[in-house]
Amino acid sequence: MALQDKYAELVQAAHAHGVANFSVAEQNGVLHVSGTAANTATYDALWALYAKIDPDMASGDLMMNIDIKADAGGQLKVTTDASNLNIRNTPSTEGEVVGKAAHGETVTLVEKTDDSWWKVRTADGEEGYAFAQYLSPM
């Protein structure tokens, strides 16, 4: 219960932002929260709260498995630091690079292959897998 108290503000915020399928469960000293945020702003707000509650996020007592609502056909923004985002023929860095999306470019989501790799299509029609971490639903 202590963990739920520690992250109470986060849980409240998730409810306030209307995070879909929101669930909270405590297991082996780790609080697992999961759900789908409606937009990137909500996602960022929740992560900022986490960083506020647990400075350095080093306690290892929270697993925040929140994703952002993204439907096939939706637009994604490439959020690399500066470089191009590789688009590969298989969902792995082992895959051959079949295309590139520039930083800040908009691509279309084809499917969420898994939590780490999403299949996307660039404006030029190149289709392949990109690392989901560098893609933000718009």
Partner: peptide, 26 residues
């Protein structure tokens, strides 16, 4: 950096594996 640390924690969530970050400095 603090921003990269957040990225790492977000990665932990998408990989669904708990990382040990006790030796990771900011």
């Amino acid at each position: 950096s603090a921003a990269d640390r957040m990225k790492i924690m977000q990665m932990q969530s998408s990989a669904k594996v708990m990382f040990d970050v006790t030796k990771l400095m900011t």
